[in-house]
């Protein structure tokens, strides 16, 4: 996947970049936002008897590392559900822990808390908060139903299903109507919720939003109406 060939979208008057990598970048404040990393999801399943390959954390962190190297942000915001469960941070391998520490070096780091990880991650640096403001933008994990001008959130793991005569494709996407933006999940094992689901309808009651779908080397913008339910 190519990093950096994103699409500029305007959110609450701010120009933001919805990137092919699934990250959201605010060039003005050199802020990189990634949502729903779900680190250690594999080992979370393993605890319950499903021995899913334990490579998800490494895969997600390697991807994040490349994105950070590309944008060189002054600040990284992990927009909640960064860890799959409350104990996940303590299950990080030494190597993954070191990678994270390395990524945090020389830049500020914010862990926005999510429903999977309400408490600050054990043994890691970084500021912890429930929500934060950057200019007109308000960043929180779970989008709030109702008027929320400038809200940037995650939580829903949006995916779009696109169908044409040539076939059908299901890909992660950003969902935005210009006043609110839901970010795709960044984690290797994070599944997806179809943007035709009622959860999205409640968030975008007036204007149907646009799906900015992650393609291999560019973002494809598709009207929600052109997307299909699963």
């Amino acid at each position: 996947m190519i990093i950096g060939n994103g699409r500029e979208i305007t959110m609450a008057g701010q120009v933001c970049m919805a990137d092919t990598s699934g990250a959201f970048y605010l060039a003005g404040s050199r802020t990189l936002i990634v949502s729903d990393l779900h680190l250690e999801k594999g080992s979370s399943f393993a605890r319950r008897g499903m021995l899913i390959p334990p490579y998800d954390t490494v895969a997600t962190l390697m991807h994040l590392k490349r994105v950070i190297e590309y944008f060189d942000p002054a600040r990284v915001i992990a927009l909640g559900d960064s860890f799959h469960d409350r104990d996940a941070a303590s299950r990080l391998s030494d190597q993954s822990h070191a990678t994270l520490v390395d990524l945090q070096d020389k830049r500020s780091w914010v862990w926005v808390s999510g429903n999977h990880d309400p408490a600050p991650p054990f043994g890691l640096a970084g500021e912890v908060c429930d929500e934060m403001h950057i200019g007109p933008l308000v960043l929180r994990h779970e989008p709030q139903v109702g008027s929320c001008f400038g809200e940037v959130a995650g939580h829903l793991h949006p995916v779009a299903r696109v169908v044409t005569a040539r076939g059908s494709l299901r890909r992660r996407c950003f969902v935005s109507d210009g006043t609110r933006c839901i970010l795709p999940a960044f984690g290797a094992y994070a599944g997806g919720l179809n943007l035709r689901d009622d959860a999205f309808a409640a968030l975008f009651p007036q204007t149907p939003p646009t799906a900015h779908v992650l393609g291999r080397d560019r973002i494809y913008s598709v009207a929600q109406d052109s997307c299909f339910a699963d």
């Binding site: 044409t164 040539r166 076939g167 059908s168 646009t210 779908v213 393609g215 494809y220 598709v222 052109s226």
Partner: peptide, 19 residues
């Protein structure tokens, strides 16, 4: 019968073109 083509991303491009 279903027709097979190369790049899957063409499907996305086609759908995006509709927009």
């Amino acid at each position: 019968e279903p027709i097979y083509g190369e790049a899957q991303d063409d499907i996305l491009a086609e759908a995006a073109a509709m927009l």
